[in-house]
Each structure stands twice: as structure tokens, then as C-alpha cells.
Amino acid sequence: MDTVISMRGATATLGSRPVLRGVDLTVRRGEVVALLGANGSGKSTAIRAVVGQVPLTSGGLELFGTPLNRFRDWARIGYVPQRTTAASGVPATVREVVSAGRLARTKLGLPRKADRRAVEHALELVGMADRAADPVEALSGGQHQRVLIARALSVEPELLIMDEPMAGVDLASQEVLAGTLREQVSLGTTVLLVLHELGPLEPLIDRAVVLRDGCVVHDGPPPKAQGQHALPGHDHVHPHAGHAAEPIRTGLF
């Protein structure tokens, strides 16, 4: 199998803080890899390093077998950043935002019919086609998240990189998105995604990589206990008061 993402011994600092301390992360073609870990463990930083947004202070990174500094084939990647709530005030519709993703293919050229179709298709995949003309400011958090996923899907990527795509998405929509993702995966798409709960995605995940304080502490089958937490109706209020401040997951490893 060929390797889509190969990150070896990656270290990165933000401010003066070491955030990644020798991360190895390999994703092979067709795999679905979940990146797990507590808040602040470096998941987003690792993801942003993979897409070239955080410079590595040491270590190596190859995308599709090409070292990052020579990688130009960005249209092969669909990226969903962790959602931020910053809004500039200038209005933009759902369709306008999703179309911005398609620029990975059109670059400085004009959009063609196939590009418009890809945008509409991406909107349908996340169930936002009926809101295409609405301004994004008028959406709920979960709907906004689905728009960002559509923006990545509009690229028709070989590799989807998503930072907490399910944050704030209700369970019903999570099921829809899981279905969408399953379809993409069956078509051969490779996926690297950050999750806090495996949720409806659990059956799709081939492998889980768990970060703690910028180090990989687990790389293998997805932890089973997570499935329990992710079951619908599972009560997240743990009775052990002493551990209340601890993220639930850290005890597992």
C-alpha cells in the first residue's frame, strides 16, 4: 500500500512552547485514521503541520510521497479546519463559501460547469442544498460545520483532513455525515480526522492515533471503551467526583 501521509519525528513549537515532541504519523491509501487526545494535546497542531500551516522545527513530512516543501498538488487534499467563531461582518452565502473550496481545482481560472456541479453535489452530501442561498451568519454551529465539510468535499479530494468535523453536529446529522464519509471511503478516499467521540463514525475507523502532550501514546486499533462513551444516551456525567476535572479519555492509556 502506498503512503499518503508520512510524518516522522515531527517537532513543532508555538510561541516558545513545544507542542509536538516527536510525532510519527503514517496514513496509508484508503485508511481512515482518527487522531484522539485531550484538549491541548496537540491534535490541531499536528493536523495543521500536515497541511503545511505549522512549520516543523525538526523531523520530516511527506504528502503522497513528496516532501512538503515540494508538494504542489493541493487539489488532492480536502481540509476542514477546526471551526472558529470569528466573523468579519461581510456577508457570504453558503454557496459562496463552499465554492471557495473548489478554487483548489480552478485556481486563478474561471469556474466551469463541472465546478458548479461539484459545489452543488457537495452541498447535497451534507444536506445543506436547501440553505445554499442563505448567509452563513444565519446558520447554527452544527450547520456551519457542515458547510465547512462541504467546502472540503467540493474539491473531490483523495485525502480528507478534518479537525473535529463533528463538533456541535447533532446525532442525526452525524449519522448523515457518517454515511457521506462511508461513501467517500468506499470510493477510495483516505481520511485523517480529529475526534473527541468516535460516535457514528466508529465502524469506519481503521486506526486510532492518540496524542498526549505532543507525543503519540497509542497507535493501533481504535480503543473499544470509546465506543461505550459514544453510544447514544450514554451518560457523560461520571460519578467519580475526584476525576471530574480529568478528561475522560486519559485514564484509558
Partner: peptide, 22 residues
């Protein structure tokens, strides 16, 4: 002429970079 590209860059600079726009 470059309204789509400038919109993308102004709206989400990091994302625009990952689409490979200059």
C-alpha cells in the same frame, strides 16, 4: 477579475493556503 480568489483569501486565509492558491 480575481473576486473569487480574493474572497477566498480574505475569508479564510489558512484554508486558501491549503487549496494551493498563491
Amino acid at each position: 477579475g480575481l473576486r473569487r480568489q480574493l474572497f477566498a483569501v480574505s475569508q479564510d486565509e489558512e484554508f486558501a493556503q491549503v487549496t494551493g492558491l498563491p
